[in-house]
Design a protein around this nucleic acid. Sequence first.
DNA 1: GCCAACGTTGGC
DNA 2: GCCAACGTTGGC
Length: 152
Amino acid sequence: MRYWIMKSEPDAFSIDDLRNRPKQTEHWDGVRNYQARNMLRDEMKKGDQAFFYHSSCKEPGIVGIAEIVRGAYPDFTAFDPENHHYDPKSTPEAPRWYMVDVRFKRRFKRTITLAELKEHEALAKLTLLRKGNRLSIMPVSAKEWNLILDLE
DNA sequence: GCCAACGTTGGC
DNA sequence: GCCAACGTTGGC
């Protein structure tokens, strides 16, 4: 079982939006970066846990936990010309992009902010904090996961 | 709104 | 295959 951080702009899709979905479950679509796709497609498995991170907002940070409830399958939003994430190079016969299903697990009592994460020496290697890393999906080690949980 | 740090595209 | 131009992300 692996741990992840998944980023989302709360204006587009927040952890509360996830909680309010039927079965508190939603597909995680729109990943259009090869590095992120490879991790999502090849390493993300049912049962994995992910920190839900709010980006591009007033207080960027980790707001809760979601669980991967379905492993990678073709991202059908790429097939839809009306969709913002449409990619004509991805077809049902040869899908280029993938998605997983995530289910709400819990919301933290408070946001563990990006600023706070940066203060901890033990988290210096966290991919999220690495300079220039803008991936929407990033791995978290078990050690980092537990350390961050303790901050709550 | 600015800008650094990427990733992608396309001419050559 | 190189690289300039362009687009995107996301913190501040």
